[in-house]
Amino acid sequence: MSKQIKIDITVPNQTRYLAVIGKITECLVHSLGYYSGDKTELAYQLNLVVTEATANAMCHANECDPSKQIKVSISVADDLLKVCVFDQGSGFDISKLAKTRAKDTDEGGRGVPIIYKLMDRVDYVKSETGYVLKMTKRLH
């Protein structure tokens, strides 16, 4: 039986769509019949990763411009889960943000470190229409 799933979601650049994208992500994880780990925990973690990545793309890369769009692509092939978030911005140095450790009383700066903590590999590279945040995780 094939163990390949791919879902593409395109939404307007508005944060009210974060809940929709998060819910689809959780549903996808719960549909992985062969995953033997804690699905509830994995679903929450991926919801979090996709929410953080999409919010960053909407508010920072796309500068909250409602005329822009965000595309989120989630795929699972065997035990490799891949999430791509496409923005229409001009990029930023994500590795710098990843290394920054938020102080206890900082209000921001936790989103990118959370992504790095929960995913195995993170790359932010140029795409045809802007940049894409590529994140992968091996499902054990």
Binding site: G22, Y44, N47, D104, T105, D106, E107, G108, R110, G111
Partner: peptide, 16 residues
């Protein structure tokens, strides 16, 4: 049921 870093940031703001 779900909190992201923005939600945490709002709580930190209130705490401070």
């Amino acid at each position: 049921r779900f909190v992201d870093s923005s939600g945490l940031g709002a709580l930190v703001s209130g705490f401070k």
